[in-house]
């Protein structure tokens, strides 16, 4: 008897892994990297001023916890507020560009142009304008982060089925009502997706902003890195905190997206 033919499976397996397995693998990946790193530093006898071993970084995390915690609070504030500004401004910008062809033609090149400005050039100028405090840091994070939000939102607005506004017009919908019933709901999940893309670069932007507008005692994680000098382990500890924060923030945005726009995720067709 010949074996029953197996149901053929599409080449990419799209079924989600069980949650437990997913979390386990998500932890396993970094652990493997850290293990390899530790072995490399120890076996190759690398100078730890150049590249500290993970265990050395862990010690620094513990020893400098007060300093790092204080710095982290400052940087987290910059990242989260900067992202929030980027989300609102980016989405509003996309809406305006979508609604008006003139605005779109006027601002399109400008929006792309802002992304070509290297951070080290941008940061000092903004510090010069806005002074040392929180403002220039928020501005820098927002300027770097609004772009993915704007692009994702614009794209979602473009992809709205053109028949939908036509149907609503037969119901007598005003422009404002079209916005309320069609465009805003279409834009919301996309804007949040854009913000998710921005999280990692938000950290980099915040660090650069802190370098450029260094304040004694309020330099955030960027200040910690800048003043660590030969204490490389402390700088790496700051980087580790940033990385973990990026993962957590992205997760939080994903949850927010599910709550605010459930139609874009679950459902039978997933």
């Amino acid at each position: 008897m010949s074996p029953a033919p197996r149901a053929s499976r599409p080449s990419g397996d799209r079924r989600p892994l069980p949650r437990g397995v997913r979390v386990l693998l998500g932890v396993l990946g970094p652990l493997l990297l850290l293990g390899g790193w530790q072995a490399y530093v120890r076996l190759a006898d690398v100078d730890e001023i150049l590249l500290p071993a993970p265990t050395t970084v862990l010690t620094a995390l513990h020893d400098d916890r007060h300093l790092l915690w204080h710095a982290f609070q400052r940087t987290a504030q910059e990242i989260l507020l900067g992202l929030a500004i980027a989300l609102v401004v980016g989405a509003l910008l996309a809406m305006t560009m979508h609604l008006s062809r003139v605005v779109r033609a006027l601002l399109g090149p400008l929006v792309i142009g802002t992304q070509a400005i290297p951070l080290p050039v941008l940061a000092p100028v903004l510090v010069f304008w806005l002074g040392f405090g929180l403002a220039p840091k928020l501005a820098i994070v927002a300027i770097i982060c609004f772009f993915p939000v704007t692009i994702a939102t614009l794209d979602a607005l473009e992809r709205v089925d053109p028949e939908l506004p036509r149907l609503l017009r037969t119901m007598g919908a005003s422009r404002l009502q079209l916005l309320r019933w069609v465009e805003l709901p279409a834009a919301l999940p996309a804007a949040l997706s854009g913000a998710k893309v921005s999280v990692a670069i938000a950290g980099i932007a915040a660090i650069f902003a802190e370098y450029a507008g260094y304040e004694q005692g309020e330099g955030g994680l960027g200040g910690v890195i800048q003043t660590a000098q030969l204490n490389t382990a402390r700088a790496f500890a700051a980087v580790a905190i940033l990385a973990v924060f990026a993962v957590v923030t992205t997760g939080a945005l994903a949850v927010l997206q599910r709550l605010a726009a459930p139609w874009a995720h679950s459902g039978r067709r997933g």
Partner: peptide
């Protein structure tokens, strides 16, 4: 003024 039921259902997904 007419109420239209289009050939594709065109329900709002949200």
């Amino acid at each position: 003024p007419a109420a239209l039921m289009p050939q594709r259902d065109l329900l709002l997904p949200w």
